[in-house]
Structures are given as structure tokens and as C-alpha cells.
Amino acid sequence: MTGEEQTVLVRCADLAKFAVPASVAQRAGSVAAALEAGQSVVELPRGVSGKGLATAVAYYQARAEAEERGADGGEFDGEFVRGLTHDAAIDLIYAAHHLGDEALFNLFAGYRAN
């Protein structure tokens, strides 16, 4: 197919590998910098686990789909964060920090656990 989006191979410190759409991968500052440097495989910092990256990618893709449907981004973010387990939230926070994605990291700024 000629209309397929380019993917980037992203490898975590725990050796988990993901083929991530380039548009999704470029949201992360550290990945975007590696792509600009011409790397075909992006090695992520030690603090990014496969679980954290999987959650980040799921968020990016679900958010893009929600925006296409016209959903409110703030409401989507709140529902996404509330739907995470404690461990998944911690993995996502580490991933957001080490990926250099301030918007993803800030999802938790107003979050209060009950």
C-alpha cells in the first residue's frame, strides 16, 4: 500500500520493541531528536519500560481517534488517566518524563487518587 504511514522501531531498556507510527513517535521529544539524527532504531532511556511505552502509544492513538470523532480532549484525558491502574500510571509517568513529552507528563498534574 502506498498510503501506509512510516513506522519507527523503538526499543526500551527492557528490550521490548515497538513499531510505532512516525506521527505518534514524534510526539516524544527524545524520539523526534533521534529521528532527526537519522536513526532507524530509537533506543529509549533506562526509565522507559515496555509497559510504559505501550501505555503511551495506546494513549496517543486513542487520543487521535477521539479527536477525529470530535471528542473533547480534556474529557478524554481525564477518562484515560482514571482508567489506569496505579502501576500503569507510574509506568506512564516515567515514560512521559524520559520521552520528553511534557503534555503527556502533565496529564497527571490535576489528578487526585480517591
Rank of each mutant, 00 (worst) to 15 (best):
L84S: 06
H97C: 00
A34S: 15
G100D: 01
G3W: 09
V10W: 13
K17S: 14
A37R: 05
L44R: 01
L104Y: 08
A37L: 05
L53D: 10
H97S: 01
V41R: 08
C12P: 06
T85P: 04
G100C: 02
G78F: 01
V24L: 06
A13L: 04
L35F: 11
E43A: 13
A37D: 15
D91N: 07
E65G: 04
G74H: 09
F108V: 05
K51Q: 13
F76G: 00
Q39L: 09
T85I: 05
L107G: 07
A25R: 12
L92S: 03
E75Q: 12
G73S: 10
E67R: 07
G74T: 08
A58Y: 13
H97R: 10
V41Q: 09
E67W: 02
D101T: 06
Y111M: 11
D14G: 02
E79Y: 03
V57P: 00
E102Q: 14
G100Q: 01
T85Q: 04
Q6L: 11
L107C: 05
A109E: 01
V42T: 12
P45H: 08
A109H: 01
G29Y: 03
A71T: 05
V24W: 02
G110A: 08
V81H: 09
R82K: 15
E75H: 11
L9G: 04
L35D: 11
A33D: 14
G52R: 02
I93A: 01
Y94S: 02
S30Y: 03
A33S: 12
F18G: 08
M1C: 12
V81W: 07
R63I: 14
E43L: 12
C12T: 15
C12L: 06
A64S: 12
G38H: 03
A19P: 09
G73H: 02
D91K: 00
R63S: 12
D91V: 00
F105W: 08
A34H: 10
L92N: 07
Y59V: 14
A37H: 05
L92Y: 08
A96V: 09
G110W: 04
L99C: 01
E79S: 08
A95W: 02
R11Y: 10
G83P: 11
L99S: 05
A88V: 02
D77H: 07
V81C: 09
R112P: 00
Y60P: 03
E5D: 07
A103H: 02
R11T: 15
V24S: 06
V24C: 11
G83C: 09
L99H: 06
G74F: 06
G52Q: 03
G50N: 10
G73I: 03
L15H: 04
E65A: 15
L84C: 08
A89Q: 08
A95L: 00
A71N: 04
A58L: 13
G110F: 09
R82M: 12
A113N: 10
V57R: 00
G78M: 05
T85S: 15
A71K: 11
D14S: 07
S23I: 14
T85K: 02
R11Q: 10
V8T: 15
A66I: 07
E75S: 08
R63C: 11
L44E: 00
L104E: 09
D14L: 06
Q6V: 15
Q6D: 05
T2Y: 09
G47E: 03
E102L: 09
K51G: 10
S40C: 04
G74V: 04
L44Y: 07
E43K: 13
